[in-house]
Design a protein around this nucleic acid. Sequence first.
DNA 1: TAATGTTTGTTAAACAATTCACGACATTAA
DNA 2: TTAATGTCGTGAATTGTTTAACAAACATTA
Lengths: 218, 218
Amino acid sequence: MSDQSKIPQATAKRLPLYYRFINNLHIQGKLRVSSKELSDAVKVDSATIRRDFSYFGALGKKGYGYNVEYLLEFFRKTLDQDESTPVALIGVGNLGTAFLNYNFMKNNNTKIEMAFDADAGKVGTEVGGVPIYHIDQLEDKLHDVGAAILTVPLSEAQTITERLIDSGVTGILNFTPARITVPEGVRVHHIDLAVELQSLIYFMKHYPLDNEDDAEEE
Amino acid sequence: MSDQSKIPQATAKRLPLYYRFINNLHIQGKLRVSSKELSDAVKVDSATIRRDFSYFGALGKKGYGYNVEYLLEFFRKTLDQDESTPVALIGVGNLGTAFLNYNFMKNNNTKIEMAFDADAGKVGTEVGGVPIYHIDQLEDKLHDVGAAILTVPLSEAQTITERLIDSGVTGILNFTPARITVPEGVRVHHIDLAVELQSLIYFMKHYPLDNEDDAEEE
DNA sequence: TAATGTTTGTTAAACAATTCACGACATTAA
DNA sequence: TTAATGTCGTGAATTGTTTAACAAACATTA
């Protein structure tokens, strides 16, 4: 939507990672950092880091490196982390609970505002400081929520997806094994635990000794 | 390691996904499937599917499509799913519990054999049919386990990683926010929940209406 | 048996991402 | 001031991935 639309997707996926590690450096009181040091920390080639940063202009100084505070401030703005984005979580099972307890606020302003579940025993309680509503109230409560984390059982995935979209959600982080169908304009990122595990094992067996990263990745 | 070493990594990451959907088709009693149908189900371009399959030779028939049973058998062999790969899980918190309850056996032979935790209250119990041992017993119990799922707190990540590697683990699915350091020859796939969420939101804000996938994703 | 329609496998082109390698400048030390 | 060192930013080369498009092969129908 903004001026940074020409940034490669691969780069965009690494930005939150950079952000967190720069934040760590800042907390540690470090004043400057080189692409090489950062590379050791985040396990991304230093040339790739320099290239990634350069899409945003000249953030560093030759012969010096990057100023940690400046970099941090820049990333905060770039990742829109001053303006908190409301997120809802659907399905407070084991995985959903894990997510709610994960302290997203520690390093960034992405916040889960509310959660939904079908279990009456959970409704009305809080998990990780997030209130849980009944799934029937989805349409009533989902105001201004743009993104949703989907941690419901497989059988519910598509139905809930459609209700989310009708309520204005345009981004879904899908942890169910279903490959949900959505209209144009809705972004879905799939994270499939079984696939991740099988994929790791396949790589172990078929790709010899080499140091790689990621998963999602894809 | 094997004869399929020249298969693109992007393709390798999709194989488990294909496998599961082909299995679904088989259960539904479907006898044949075209790349187009499969494309609708898994949300991967049909040309990409044909290209992916073709790395393994001619699996389909022109004018007909792919025989579901044949495809399923082929993938089972290819993904080494006849020979179950032992996996251990470290850290039976919310996320770890979610993993143990996830029924990996349903569609494939990847099995979590054992889990470890530091909490004496959990040791000796079972979650999802998987026995939980004390973390002190890691070195004693980890025989023939090649892969580990790491769902421990951030502060423990690197220490546990080193113990795992000393015990012969060569693949780690890392759910902690730490970018762990490992020697050559050990494969690590990182899945960072905070990064995934932030990345989704960044894409929503900066990349206009288009239908994409993944997270790892690479 | 011939005509028609379907779908693969693959060639070539387009697109995307990574990595190399080096000029330019900053910093530090002498 | 000068020399030595460190580090960025980037053009070019490389590598990796996706997509379009189509001939060839097969299935189906009449």
